[in-house]
Amino acid sequence: MADVVVIVPTLRRPSDLERALRSLFAQEGVQGTFREIVVVDNDPAGSARNGVQALSSDCPVPLIYCHAPRPGVATARNSGLAATDAPLIAFLDDDEAASPGWLAALIQAQASTGADVVFGPITGRVPDGTGWARPYLERFFGREGPARTGLIDEPFGCGNSLMVRATALAGPAPFDTRADHAGGEDDALFAALSARGGRFGWAAEAWVEEYAPAHRATLKYALTRAFAYGQGPSQTAAAAGNWPGVLRWMAIGLAQAMAWGLIGLFLLAINHQRRAEAFDRAARGIGKVLWMKGFEPHFYGSNEIARLDRVQAA
């Protein structure tokens, strides 16, 4: 069985990072396969270094600190890959905590399906006090999939995934750094993999919990993120030069935005609990229409560092 390395990108989340790492220290059923953990610190100041070093004595495998001072989600992922030559690469976000059987379930699912990338389910957690939108936000930050392990048609995001390096992560920098600030680097990677005939799998038992920080556990953030997710299909088609496909996605998006926008307004008028879901779908439709540069929300990189600086100064 091939060696696997877990890459954990992080940016100024010391408590979250410790929770994520300790969940990895407790992994079961992967002795002799789980090679190491690579923590990629995307803070220019290298703020995670001391915390990672303090935890190294508790780690059952080598715990490698990697500094990626240029802020950006794609840069962080590429830097983690450059720090290891392992044939299997798992990604866990720093705001996630893995269940004890997480990594073993991903490895077993990859072996049984032969998929190039395997994804697992996520339980969303949001802070107390999020109000009526809490059920929607927990679903938004979570991930559901098939009840059983097997091949799937469409990919998910990088968080909670296992990739075969030789087929899914070709080249020294497989993640497009043009997505450093807006995200979507995984969408582009998986679209290219699909075009090459790559396969995607689902590991039904590979559970993680995702803890949304307070500044993200808001309806405004979730709908902005939904808009960005909606941009993905149109942007992918444009990147491939598939302009009929772009027009098709824009037409779908316009219909989606109009239909779900009207449904959302009706549900809002009657104070229905599911109104947030309707506005989510409308936002994704608008994203398909307004996919061009200049409309891209920036969630990562220097924008996130600037936000953290404002919080610390307040």
Rank of each mutant, 00 (worst) to 15 (best):
Arg225Trp: 12
Ala240Tyr: 01
Ala238Phe: 13
Val246Trp: 02
Leu247Phe: 13
Ala240Leu: 10
Gly241Ser: 14
Phe227Gly: 09
Met250Tyr: 00
Val246Ile: 12
Gln235Ile: 12
Trp243Ile: 12
Val246Glu: 02
Ala251Trp: 07
Met250Lys: 03
Gly232Cys: 14
Tyr221Met: 08
Arg248Pro: 05
Ala239Phe: 04
Gly253Ser: 05
Leu247Thr: 04
Tyr229Asp: 12
Ala238Ile: 04
Leu247Asn: 02
Gly245Thr: 04
Val246Pro: 06
Lys220Asn: 14
Tyr229Ile: 12
Leu254Ser: 10
Lys220Arg: 15
Ala237Phe: 02
Met250Asn: 11
Asn242Trp: 11
Thr236Leu: 15
Ala226Gly: 01
Ala237Lys: 08
Ala237Thr: 01
Gly232Glu: 01
Leu223Trp: 09
Ile252Lys: 14
Ala237Ile: 04
Val246Thr: 00
Val246Met: 07
Pro244Ala: 09
Leu223Pro: 06
Gly241Glu: 05
Leu254Val: 12
Leu223Val: 00
Tyr221Glu: 12
Ala228Gly: 10
Asn242His: 07
Phe227Glu: 01
Ala222Ile: 04
Pro244Gly: 12
Ala239Glu: 15
Thr224Phe: 01
Pro244Gln: 02
Leu247His: 15
Gly245Arg: 08
Ala228Phe: 10
Gln231Trp: 10
Ser234Ile: 04
Ala228Arg: 08
Arg248Val: 13
Ala228Trp: 03
Gly253Leu: 01
Tyr229Pro: 00
Leu247Trp: 14
Ala251Glu: 12
Ala222Leu: 00
Met250Arg: 12
Gly230Thr: 10
Pro244Leu: 08
Ala228Glu: 12
Tyr221Trp: 13
Gly245Ala: 05
Gln235Arg: 15
Lys220Ser: 14
Arg248Asn: 11
Tyr229Lys: 08
Ala237Gln: 12
Ala222Ser: 15
Pro233Val: 05
Pro244Phe: 00
Val246Arg: 00
Ala239Pro: 07
Ala222His: 08
Arg225Glu: 13
Gly241Asn: 05
Ala251Arg: 06
Pro244Asn: 10
Ala238His: 14
Trp249Glu: 09
Ala226Asn: 10
Gly230Ile: 02
Ala226His: 06
Leu254His: 04
Gly230Met: 09
Ala238Cys: 06
Arg248Lys: 13
Ser234Trp: 05
Ala239Gly: 08
Trp249Arg: 12
Pro233Arg: 13
Tyr221Asn: 15
Gln231Ser: 01
Gly245Pro: 03
Val246Asp: 04
Trp249Ile: 02
Ala237Pro: 08
Met250Leu: 00
Pro244Ile: 02
Lys220Glu: 14
Gly241Cys: 14
Leu254Lys: 11
Ala240Lys: 13
Ile252Pro: 00
Leu254Glu: 09
Ala226Thr: 09
Gly232Met: 13
Gly253Met: 00
